[in-house]
Amino acid sequence: MAATDITQITPAGSRLRLGAAEIWRQRELLYFLTLRDVKIRYKQTLIGIAWAVLQPVLTTVIFTAIFSGWARFDTNDIAYPLFAMTGLTLWLFVQNAVSMASNSFVNNTNLVTKVYFPRLIVPLAATLAALFDLVFSIAVLAVLMVYYRAVPSAEILLVPVFMVLAFMLAAAVGTLLSALNVRFRDVKFAVPFFLQVWMIASPVFYPASMISEKWRLVFAINPMTGILEGFRSAVFGKPFDWPLIGVSTASLLVIAAVSLVVFRSMEDDFADVI
């Protein structure tokens, strides 16, 4: 027999590792779980994936009705619907990804109690599945850009960078919440509230320039601030606020590290606690 795999089983806590290699080996499972989450997301709905378009469109309409008539923001001569839609494109992704990921273990109890695989795959699959909606949001954004004749410049090449950062943020927060949710079901109730507060605290429907210069970098501790501002600069070809983006990215890395450490320390007990 080929002396191939040796599985070592040891008590909990005696192995703190990133586990990236193991996840890579099981990438097909990640693929199939993502595919499943995408396929079932709009099953048994009347209008199906039209929801993926309606969600950003309706939210933009509501924001526009409220904020371009009644309370006006200085959006730097960008039409408000377009401004709001750029913010919503990434925000709705983060919001959907975090809420799907945070419930991912609780909704997959059997996977945890009956089979072994790197546990990180579950919240990652939920986050990846949310990318499906992002594609539709980007399409809506593109249509709006054509409508408002927003001509992209070279900066648009940096759009993927901010998408990757948004993905990392959603994955980090979703993973952390998914682990906490296994032990504390309070998370399930807290997440919708948390997401509302987070949206208000992020420059989704208002520009970061609204915040006074002095406080702007503090505001950037919320990684969403730098990501949204950077994304808008890239889409509209405006100058990047690098200090702001830098603070947000650093904060994102700290959140990701904390999330990973917490997750690793909790995952061994999942099957016993869930």
């Binding site: 795999d5 599985t7 008590p11």
Partner: peptide
């Protein structure tokens, strides 16, 4: 099956 870790002790399994 590695679903839950032992409190004490070890095991090793050779093969997939």
């Amino acid at each position: 099956s590695r679903i839950t870790p032992p409190t004490r002790g070890t095991a090793s399994i050779a093969g997939r």
